[in-house]
Design a binder for these strands. Structure first.
Lengths: 187, 187, 187, 187
DNA sequence: AATGAATGAGGTTTCATTCAT
DNA sequence: CATGAATGAAACCTCATTCAT
């Protein structure tokens, strides 16, 4: 039941926004009453926090798996991370949207739990870049920090437009993205 | 007075979010009464619409100026657009945040005015890419559409993290971004 | 201008109700601004009072003319009064509706000016009835007071349904009404 | 509680008018909070609609009982209907006032539910008249439609003045009314 | 004679939350 | 586990009115 509520909430939050979705909206969407909601969640914010945590923890988890897999070049790792982000936008578009858009609805204390994880994710990318520079795979004069933001921008921005049912699937988009990130677009 | 109200609203919307900012918050921030707000705006949504229109129209305007300036290569144009986006995030960070985050608070009719403009901006970038491909400046095998989203992602994502007072200014960040976009990061 | 404003107000009050019609509605309907309204009227209530006074004074005036015309039987007078009420509903339907429906929006002091006039109108009808009873024109056992209310009811209720453009004109309806009032409907 | 709220609302609407009565007025009159009101009613208009429906349905119901009772002449039926209307004005004066005066505060969709019922009530009276004409009880040359409005006017107008505590009770007034309606007032 | 900026009180409605059952 | 009645604070918005110009 808690799971079911969370699912429905994510969908509603994506469509209408967190503030614009009322507890009534949520409980009516699954045919129970408000009391039931407060049996499973202590507050609306708690529910939002659950969604955030589930999303970022999953991302960090996937990222860790990618990084720790032996026998990969840094470029392989970067590709896998970008690909994984697109896959997550494909399968969890609603969660992604809520995650990127509704963060400000968390209280400062809750934010203090989420923000470090967000930065950890980016920071791991930066480390991969540095590792690649040191190993000679990547250009020596890169600003690893700014480039990590650039790569995140390329991948994450997809939640604004990427359509999993569209012409290109997430693998193809990841290929195109990595083509540009690695080799640029200049002739 | 209307201008003043809009300014303060943008700042508040950025900090607290559109839905979380009340008319009371706005009018108290400048020491007038609610009636005054409704003397100048027909609704809260109208104010949000004004902000959106002002932002996107300004972007389109700047973009048009860049594109129509004679004697530029396509790469110059791309650089100028990315640079311009970063400048606009620097000087109008609040507006940018509101623009990218609070779009769902517009009614469908209002959205129908904004979305085409947003896509026009992206589409212009795609045209520059195509033009560059045809002239031989850019690689022939690019997917101009997806790449236009990638470039937008790199630039626009900055509103999440770019600090105009930080270590790098908008010119330097634009240089780094264009370095990656044009030449890639591979050694 | 004052006249024009009153006319438009009556029409708006009829259609939307007094409370539901704002000063803005009124001034916009004639293309001036709110200041202008307050140049001519001291308050919205004052305007309503003007409408009430104009209506009831006109009715009393017409009634007085009918009663004072020499050489009429009481039945003639009753007919003329009923006919006059129907004519007034025909030509001043909006005023009539406002008069009968929006009285409660007058303050007690204003009501104290209107109510005696309303009762004076009815009372005059009662006097005509009494006069007719004494002269032998009307049945001796009538309750003149209650019958005066009955006659008023027959005539005034017309504002709910009488359509001057309809099948019967006000003269024909007055004839039918008086037929019933004088001779009843029994075979 | 819902019943209690409706009762108090009717009383307040009668005294101050629908628009002039605020939700605050209503809930304060029974010592609950505004939230409670909206727990039972979806809107203020819904409450007004409830009142209208309850009133007209009750009238139609009573009318149907009168008409379907066997062994009555048409004149009996007419008397019973007029008497019933006066009784309803006696016992439900507030509802009657609200019903006759506040109809314009219903939206068009709601009106479309009420108006047919109102006309059904009048139409039933017309049918009784026609039946009486055909049976020879009533004069052959009556305009049944207009006369039905006249009878309704006589009876319904009472809500403006009838005082159940006054000199005459509703039975006596009904007798006087029917005396005029059946036999007229002429000597 | 008319305007337009500003007010402030009050309107209807929404909603997260509580709690006895 | 779940309900349903109730709360109360706060939301957006309207509007009669004032007043300097």
């Amino acid at each position: 039941m808690k799971e079911k509520m969370t699912e429905h909430s994510i969908r509603l939050f994506e469509k209408k926004g967190f503030s614009e979705t009322s507890i009534t909206d949520i409980v009516e969407s699954i045919g129970v009453t408000k009391g039931t909601f407060y049996y499973y969640f202590t507050s609306k914010e708690q529910l939002l926090m659950d969604i955030h945590l589930a999303y970022i923890d999953e991302l960090l988890n996937e990222q860790a798996k990618i990084i720790s897999t032996p026998g990969k070049t840094c470029k392989d790792i970067l590709f896998d991370i970008v690909h994984m982000l697109l896959k997550s936008i494909k399968t969890k578009k609603s969660s992604a949207t809520v995650f990127f858009r509704e963060m400000k609805n968390l209280s400062n204390e809750k934010l203090a739990q989420i923000l470090p994880k967000r930065d950890e994710f980016r920071s791991k990318i930066e480390q991969v870049l540095i590792c690649g520079i040191e190993s000679g795979e990547l250009r020596a004069n890169l600003d690893a920090s700014i480039i990590s933001f650039a790569i995140l921008g390329v991948a994450n921005w997809s939640y604004h437009w990427f359509d999993p049912e569209g012409e290109k699937n997430e693998r193809e988009v990841a290929d195109i993205f990595m083509g540009m990130i690695l080799h640029g677009i200049e002739a």
